[in-house]
């Protein structure tokens, strides 16, 4: 088997391949569902119903998509400049931690000042967290995949230490969780009584803003150039190191905003299960969107829908909800395969 490069894919191909990838995902997942002794068609029907079959389902999917949009955007921005930020999980937790530290009464301010202040604080701390690995990459050529990945564990243990210590809520009956943030620190719900909050609106607005940055600004142009060919960018006079650092600050900040949004909008306090791997799933979300910020919104909703729908399906059909992880993981593999197939022709012998 060998690969030969193809000329630029046509428009039809660039639509056909991703659609084929999703289709392939469901065939592979369907085989597993059959192995679990259920009918794939009815199982996928139940997933769809659970994800989008009612107002409750739709709102739940969008609520679940919100943190994924933030982490997906953080990853998409970084990957676009070929900065491999695998540490969105850590940045997410740092954003949440800062929100809890400043939002539980330390700053007695009205909401219209406190909320923006918390957002800026989260943004800064997340940016700083990724600035370290970015500096090591620029200065010493340290692989940021390793440093950002390892920081995830360091930060999670650090948060665990805080939750067992200074941040532990005395009213929590011994559970490692923080106190709730003040009402003034919270993001309001979009529909009273439902879980969907204004974090979703912020996330979508951020996606549109980033699309604009990528398309229309000097920074976006520089980031794309560095991502495609850092050597050429350097030769052409672009400040490559500075661009990598700016990308890192932006990416880390965005992921941390996701942590702020999840605490201030939904959970209210910090626990060790605040994120069931949003940082890592953000990588899948960004790749599915082919790093397009607007695409991230849709791929985040798709991935969130799979998780929410599979949970509902599992209650009804008795197939374990782990099938959601399988579908999401498979969709990443089929998508990467589809991207490769759109660029190379495969020759058998």
């Amino acid at each position: 088997m060998r690969l030969e490069p193809k000329p630029a894919p046509s428009l039809a191909a660039s639509i056909l391949y991703p659609v084929g990838a999703i289709f392939g995902t469901f065939i592979i997942a369907g085989l597993l569902v059959m192995a679990a002794g259920a009918n794939p068609i009815s199982v996928f029907g139940l997933v769809l119903k659970g994800a989008a079959g009612s107002q409750f389902a739709i709102l739940e999917t969008l609520t679940r998509a919100t943190p994924l949009i933030f982490t997906g955007l953080a990853v998409a921005v970084a990957f676009r400049a070929k900065l491999w930020n695998i540490g969105a999980e850590a940045q997410f937790y740092i954003g949440a931690t800062v929100t809890v530290i400043l939002g539980t009464g330390a700053l007695p301010l009205p909401a219209f000042i406190l909320v923006p202040l918390l957002m800026i604080a989260a943004l800064l701390c997340g940016a700083l967290l990724l600035a370290g690995p970015a500096w090591l990459k620029i200065r010493f050529g340290v692989d940021e995949v390793v440093t950002t990945l390892l920081l995830n564990f360091i930060v999670l243990l650090f948060v665990s230490m805080l939750l067992e210590g200074v941040l532990k809520d005395p009213m929590s009956l011994g559970w490692p969780q923080s106190a709730k943030v003040m009402t003034e620190a919270q993001l309001p719900r979009i529909i009273t009584g439902k879980r969907l909050h204004y974090g979703f609106v912020i996330a979508v607005a951020l996606a549109i803003a980033l699309w604009f940055v990528m398309k229309k600004t000097v920074l976006g142009y520089e980031m794309r150039a560095v991502g495609h060919n850092a050597g050429a960018a350097r030769f052409l006079g672009m400040p490559v190191n500075g661009i990598v650092m700016k990308t890192a600050l932006l990416s880390g900040g965005i992921a941390a905003l996701g942590g702020f949004s999840e605490v201030a909008g939904l959970k209210g306090n910090l626990t060790l299960d605040l994120s069931p791997g949003f940082g890592y799933t953000g990588i899948v979300v960004a790749m599915l969107a082919m790093l397009n910020p607007i695409g991230v919104v849709f791929s985040a909703i798709f991935v969130a829908g799979i998780f929410v729908g599979a949970a509902a399906m599992s209650r009804a059909a008795g197939v374990p909800s782990y099938i959601a992880d399988v579908i999401v993981a498979t969709s990443l593999l089929t998508m990467v395969t589809a991207i490769m197939l759109s660029r190379y022709r495969v020759r058998w012998r």
């Binding site: 000097v218 142009y221 794309r224 150039a225 495609h228 060919n229 050597g231 050429a232 960018a233 030769f235 052409l236 006079g237 672009m238």
Partner: peptide, 27 residues
């Protein structure tokens, strides 16, 4: 500067003609 290697220095191959033409003077 007309560099030796068009693909690794002179141009960012995956960007557009326009994006490459302004690459030395976009500021």
């Amino acid at each position: 500067r007309v560099p030796e290697d068009r693909h690794s220095q002179g141009a960012v191959a995956d960007m557009s003609v326009m994006e490459n033409v302004i690459a030395e003077r976009y500021r």
